[in-house]
């Protein structure tokens, strides 16, 4: 159980985080494919994947040169910043303070932009660039997530498996439904990912500082539970109506 905890949590975190990013990239590639043609969409996406693969091949081996405690600390700090940003957004979306991310709206926006460019003689090129940019930008986040959740415990392989599974699942669902994946509970996924990445971040920053967590890797689950309970408490606190002043009618 103790050795399975980091593997399962690494695969789950990489899968869920990558799934959200791949869905966002898929929406744009689909918009390009449907509005213009599949050639620029697939060429743009393939080129972006090649650039991402090159980034991983160039920078991946450099990580093995960094001492493990320093790597854990740096990755932990980045994951705290990254995870808390996701968690904050997910909480604010749950509270209705900011709007939910809408894949249908993103698809419509990209489609209308491509239609405006339809008469441009560079229309195919612009469509390809749109697909390239979407896959590259969302892919950079996936690469970071895979490296971050995998590197600190030498589990980049398991993190890659999680990310690849997310990519394949979105591709299969996308091929079947052939429209934006708007029914995916994206905010719930982002909430879960924010909780996991923040917990990973705190755990590894602690390890990087030399903390001997009680229960070793199982402490990660305890941190996750604390962060989860606190996040739900925040939502409950801000959802509950402000108490009325004494003497005033309710």
């Amino acid at each position: 159980m103790n050795s399975l905890t980091p593997i399962i949590s690494t695969i789950t975190a990489a899968f869920l985080a990558s799934f959200v990013e791949v869905v966002e990239a898929f929406t744009i590639v689909l918009a390009v494919g449907v509005t213009r043609s599949w050639r620029p969409a697939l060429i743009g996406a393939a080129l972006a994947l090649a650039v991402l693969a090159a980034l991983v091949l160039v920078f991946g081996p450099l990580l093995s040169l960094v001492p493990i405690t320093l790597l854990q600390f740096v990755v932990g700090v980045l994951l705290i910043l990254f995870g808390m940003r996701w968690l904050r957004k997910a909480i604010l979306r749950s509270l209705g303070v900011i709007a939910l991310h809408d894949e249908e709206a993103a698809f419509s926006k990209e489609t209308s932009l491509l239609q405006q460019q339809a008469n441009d003689r560079r229309a195919d090129y612009l469509a390809g660039v749109a697909a390239f940019k979407a896959v590259l930008l969302e892919g950079v986040e996936v690469v970071f997530i895979v490296i971050a959740v995998g590197a600190a415990h030498s589990q980049t392989f398991y993190a890659s498996v999680g990310a690849l599974a997310a990519f394949l699942l979105v591709a299969v669902i996308g091929l079947v439904v052939h429209r934006p994946l708007s029914r995916i509970p994206e905010n719930a996924l982002k909430f879960a990912v924010g909780l996991m990445l923040t917990s990973f971040g705190i755990f590894w920053t602690g390890e990087g500082l030399g903390a001997d967590w009680p229960g070793a890797d199982l402490a990660l689950l305890a941190i996750f539970a604390v962060v989860t309970l606190f996040s739900f408490a925040i939502i409950r606190w801000f959802r509950s109506p402000a108490p009325s002043s004494p003497g005033k009618p309710a």
Binding site: I202, G206, L209, V226, V227
Partner: peptide, 18 residues
């Protein structure tokens, strides 16, 4: 000690989030 400091980090992160 690193463990109490890390627990303080956990509490601090949650306070910053709130």
């Amino acid at each position: 000690p690193a463990l109490p400091a890390s627990l303080f980090l956990l509490a601090g992160c949650l306070a910053i989030l709130a």
